[in-house]
Amino acid sequence: MLYLVLACDVLFWVFLVGGLAARYAAGWRTLGGVLLLCVPLIDVVLLAATVLSIRNGAEPTVWHGLSAAYLGITVVYGHRTVRWADAKLARRFGEAAPPPRPKLYGRAAIVDAWTSWLTFLLAYALSVGLMFGLVVLVGGLDEGAPLLVWLNPLTKVLVYSLLWPVLTTIWPGKAPEASEKG
């Protein structure tokens, strides 16, 4: 299962880079689009393989739990990563104007910090939901305990990352002062 998770992660980047290279560097927009559409299919393959492995009687392992954790994160962040990389290359190859620089001070900084944390909270919730779904699939906590090993590091990241929006809310930063020429 570990090798399948690693293969899916490698394939994510292969399809992303290949799709963007085909779209922008080679000018093959259709092929690039098809390769980018394969990115979410990797998650479907990993989910199906994980469920089939468990249903076919495989011993539930920590790697099945990693699969669930990985899926929760990639479902939430995968599309964002593809959009971000696509926008970067579109600007690089002159097909899009650069966006205005974000204001990362004051209220905008607070909203950005809480939005980022809530996005991770969604990824965390999906990961935990998938882990507990696998526990139910294997017949309960007695057999499914190894699946929940990834709860500890995910929960730590969730709790520690809460510091950023809390601190940003307390100290949101000030607008940069406009430099006066004259």
Rank of each mutant, 00 (worst) to 15 (best):
R55M: 05
V138K: 02
G133C: 05
G78V: 02
V34F: 02
L162P: 09
L148D: 14
A69S: 14
A96Q: 12
L31A: 14
V14R: 01
G173S: 09
V135E: 08
G173F: 07
R91T: 12
V34Y: 02
V62K: 14
L121E: 12
G19P: 04
R83I: 00
R80W: 04
L126A: 10
R92M: 13
R80E: 07
Y105F: 13
K103G: 13
A109V: 11
N56C: 01
M1Q: 08
E95F: 05
S161V: 06
E95C: 06
I42P: 00
P165M: 07
P60F: 09
S53P: 01
W171A: 10
N152D: 07
L46Q: 10
A145K: 10
T61H: 09
C8L: 08
R83T: 04
A25Q: 04
V135C: 01
A125K: 01
V51H: 00
M1H: 07
A85C: 12
L52V: 05
R92V: 00
A123S: 04
S161Y: 06
A26W: 09
V44Y: 04
T81S: 06
L118K: 03
A97T: 12
E180L: 04
L137A: 02
A21T: 08
F12V: 03
V39Q: 08
V159G: 12
P172W: 12
L134T: 01
G129F: 04
H64T: 02
F15W: 12
L151H: 05
Y77F: 14
P60E: 13
L162A: 15
H64M: 01
Y70L: 01
M131E: 13
T30V: 12
V149C: 04
I73W: 05
